[in-house]
């Protein structure tokens, strides 16, 4: 048994895995641990086995994508599972393994990838930028957001923000890593506490006005809302403070609606366009269709 200590990052795992695989080390002989403090790769107890050349080992490209994504998951067992999959795909001779969603290991890694994918998606959805200043020299608006991801996804998630918000300066702060964009370059710094991020934005009230009025009280479906927007996100969403009130008053609002008097139809106003429309409706209902060959 050997202990492998790596930085909790995909590149660090890959470098170690490549070496171990080249030495033919079987998965059960390795104890993986991460250590964010110690950058040095430590592989205990060197064993020189009959080693296939590293270049001779072919890994399906799909596995590299899976590995990159699963590496961001918070479960400590991911490194061992990734190595076991890598070993089975190569030295284990199960080249078709990734086609087997029914396999226990494959299923587990797919679950982790899905959780990471969802976390990235929710970060894209629920980050809320707050305007903090306008650069006097460049005129660029500067925004700061706070987000608490479940997994180590900041680097996987920020290319989206770079493409979408190129025209403004922004920082996204999280407890473990922060990303910053200044119009030219993306860079990363260490995580910060929540108190470093602004609490509100002048536009939040207007946004809440929109949220309140786009809600339809006649069709309350609380489970549907919560399955997509679980409560853990609410504390960082400016609109979430309205939810309880909107639900509480919805039944009364519908009752009031049902109580209102029916209104008779009003006569058409004098309007040339409306008249032409009514004339058209009287005469030709089936105008020949010039633009579509479809019947």
């Amino acid at each position: 048994m050997r202990t492998v200590v790596i930085m909790p990052e995909y590149e660090s795992w890959r470098a170690a895995a490549r070496l171990l695989l080249a030495q033919g080390v079987v998965p059960d002989d390795i104890l993986w641990t991460d250590d964010a403090q110690d950058a040095s790769l430590f592989v205990g107890e060197e064993t020189a086995a009959t080693v296939p050349a590293a270049s001779a080992i072919k890994v399906p490209p799909a596995f590299m994508d899976i590995a990159r994504s699963a590496a961001a998951h918070s479960d400590a067992r991911r490194w061992a599972l990734l190595y076991r999959l890598l070993w089975r795909l190569t030295l284990g001779g199960e080249r078709h393994l990734l086609s087997m969603s029914t396999d226990r290991d494959v299923r587990q890694i797919q679950d982790w990838c899905k959780a990471v994918g969802r976390d990235i998606h929710k970060m894209h959805a629920f980050v809320r930028f707050r305007l903090v200043s306008v650069d006097a020299a460049t005129g660029r608006e500067q925004f700061v957001a706070w987000f608490e991801p479940d997994h180590r996804i900041v680097r996987l998630a920020v290319p989206f923000f770079e493409k979408r918000f190129a025209g403004m300066d922004w920082s996204i702060l999280t407890p473990y890593e922060c990303a910053h964009w200044d119009g030219k370059r993306l860079h990363f710094t260490a995580g910060v506490p929540r108190s470093n991020a602004p609490d509100a934005d002048a536009l939040d009230d207007l946004w809440r006005t929109y949220y309140r009025n786009i809600f339809n009280p006649a069709r309350v479906k609380i489970n549907a809302m919560q399955s997509e927007m679980p409560k853990k996100y609410w504390k960082n969403l400016p609109e979430a403070s309205l939810i309880a009130g909107l639900i509480a008053e919805s039944a009364g609002r519908v009752q009031d609606m049902l109580k209102t008097e029916e209104r008779p139809a009003k006569e058409a106003p004098k309007n040339a366009y409306l008249k032409s429309l009514h004339d058209m409706n009287q005469t030709d209902v089936t105008k020949p269709n010039h633009d579509s060959e479809e019947t």
């Binding site: 989206f160 809600f215 339809n216 809302m225 919805s250």
Partner: peptide, 28 residues
């Protein structure tokens, strides 16, 4: 399309994102 290289903002082409949900279960 996206905003890289422009002074503006905006991108499309992905899966589409629901930025919030109201208690009627519909996405915003």
């Amino acid at each position: 399309k996206d905003s890289r290289g422009s002074k503006g903002v905006g991108s499309t082409g992905g899966a589409g994102i629901c930025h919030s949900y109201t208690p009627d279960g519909r996405c915003v």
